[in-house]
Amino acid sequence: MSEENPAEDVIYAVENHIATITLNRPHRRNALNWNAYAQLEAALKSASSDDEVRCVIVTGADPAFCSGDDVAEIMAGPKSFAATRSALTIVKHSPTPAAMAALECEKPMIAAINGAAIGWGMELAIYADIRIASERAKFSEMFIKRGLVPDVGGFYRLPAIVGPAKAAELMFTGDVIDAAEALRIGLVSEVTPHEDLMARAQALAARIAVNPPLALRFIKEGLTRHSYGSPREIGAWAIEAIRRLMETEDHKEGVASFLEKREPVFRGK
C-alpha cells in the first residue's frame, strides 16, 4: 500500500517515524468491506513491526472517519450474508483480525477523527491510545440498531474510557453524539477546527516520536495492562454473540430498514 496508488482502500505512508493510515473509501464514507478490513489489518501490522515507526495516526479521507461496515457488501443479500457468517465462524474463538491488529499494535496510536465514526468506525477510534476530533466528528455504537453487539472495542475499552454507565448508555441506545459531547465524557481528549485536525495530530505524533522507541513500547504495554487487561476472551465472546445474532430476524430487519431508509420494527426473534 502506498500513496502512489490512491485507488487502494487504505493508504499507508511513513514519514519522520510517523505512520499514517488513511481509510480511503470516501464514496462510501469509508465504510469497510472485506478488502478494506484486510488492508487495514495489514497496515496496522506493518506499522507495529517497522522499527522506523514510532507513532501511528489513523484517519479517514473526508468527509468521514469510518462509517462502519459497508452494509450493502457485508450484510445484505444471501451471498454477502453467507460470506460474513462464514468469516465469523472461522474467527469464532478469537477477536476479528483487524481489531486484534489494532489492539496489538506496539506503537502509540492516535485517531484523528475527521467525521463520522459509526459502528466499527467508533470501535477503530476506541482502539487508539489518544483520540483527537474535528468539530465535525460524530460517534455512535449503533450495533443495537442492526440487532447486533459491538466488536471487542465496545466491551473491552469503552467502559474504561467513559465509565461503565455511559458505555452502557451508548451501547444500549445506539445514540449519535457530537464532538462536544465526546469531549465532555472523555471519549476524545481534544476537539479542533476541521482544517486544523491533521496538523494537530501530526504535531502530537512528532512530540511522541522523538522519544526512545523501547520506552514508548513499554509505556503502551503498561497502560494496556493497567486499564484493560487481555482482550482475547471478551473478543472471542463478542464474535460468537455476533455470529448468533446474525441468524435472528431482528438483525435482518435492522439491515433491511437501513437499506430501505425506514425505521426498523424489531420483534425479539
Rank of each mutant, 00 (worst) to 15 (best):
I90R: 12
I90S: 09
I90A: 13
V91S: 13
V91L: 11
V91E: 11
V91Y: 14
V91H: 14
K92G: 11
K92A: 15
H93S: 14
S94T: 05
S94Q: 10
S94M: 07
P95M: 08
P95R: 03
P95I: 03
T96F: 07
T96V: 07
P97K: 06
P97G: 04
P97N: 04
P97T: 04
A98N: 08
A98L: 04
A98G: 05
A99V: 03
A99L: 01
M100W: 10
M100H: 10
M100S: 14
M100P: 13
A101T: 02
A102Y: 04
A102K: 05
L103D: 12
E104H: 08
C105M: 01
M109P: 00
M109W: 00
I110R: 03
I110P: 01
I110G: 02
A111H: 06
A111P: 10
A111K: 08
A112C: 02
A112W: 01
A112F: 00
A112E: 01
I113H: 00
I113L: 04
I113T: 02
I113V: 13
N114R: 11
N114E: 01
G115N: 07
G115C: 09
A116N: 11
A116V: 06
A117L: 02
I118L: 15
I118E: 09
I118Y: 14
G119D: 09
G119P: 08
W120G: 12
W120T: 07
W120V: 08
W120Q: 12
G121I: 11
G121F: 06
M122I: 06
E123C: 12
E123P: 07
L124Q: 11
L124R: 01
A125E: 07
A125R: 06
I126S: 06
I126K: 00
Y127C: 14
A128L: 09
A128H: 05
D129I: 01
D129M: 06
D129S: 10
D129A: 08
D129L: 06
I130S: 06
I130M: 12
R131D: 01
R131H: 03
I132Q: 05
I132S: 08
I132F: 08
A133V: 03
S134R: 03
S134I: 03
E135Q: 15
E135D: 14
R136A: 15
R136P: 00
R136F: 02
A137I: 10
A137L: 10
K138W: 00
K138E: 12
F139T: 06
F139K: 03
F139L: 08
S140C: 11
S140W: 09
S140M: 07
S140K: 07
S140Y: 10
S140N: 06
E141C: 15
E141H: 09
E141Q: 11
M142Y: 12
F143N: 11
I144Y: 05
I144F: 05
I144C: 15
R146W: 09
R146Y: 14
G147I: 09
G147W: 11
G147L: 14
L148M: 15
L148H: 09
V149Y: 01
D151C: 13
D151P: 04
D151G: 15
D151T: 13
D151H: 13
V152A: 15
V152T: 14
V152S: 09
G153C: 01
G153S: 00
